[in-house]
Design a protein around this nucleic acid. Sequence first.
DNA 1: GTGTTGACCCCAA
DNA 2: TTTGGGGCCAACA
Length: 109
Amino acid sequence: MDGISFYEQVYQLVALIPRGRVTTYGAIAKALGAAKSSRMVGTALINAHHPEQILPIYRVVNRNGLLTGKHHYESSSHMQQLLESEGVSILNDQVKDFKALFWDPMQEL
DNA sequence: GTGTTGACCCCAA
DNA sequence: TTTGGGGCCAACA
């Protein structure tokens, strides 16, 4: 296929997430045609140190709207703080009104 | 080359 | 409710 790796596809999709919205690993994986490879999405975000490109990976949460990736940040509250600064309310490490704030890549693309 | 781990998800009991 | 199993695939020891 093209010279774009799975990781690159994840990065591009994450970069398209609108401000104040969130999405899930599974939704991204499915949008890329790898619904069962949702793990790779999370792994990709760990290596998300993309050059000259800021990725709002904090807008990506798990299926339950839980901030499972916050432990990989400098501070546990960092991820939550970033989300709240965009108008996303977090309650008990979980996105409030997750269903309403959920951004489905498939629906936009 | 083999085994384990992991920012996940789904289903069954 | 919790627990257990399967799947997927890259990175690491």
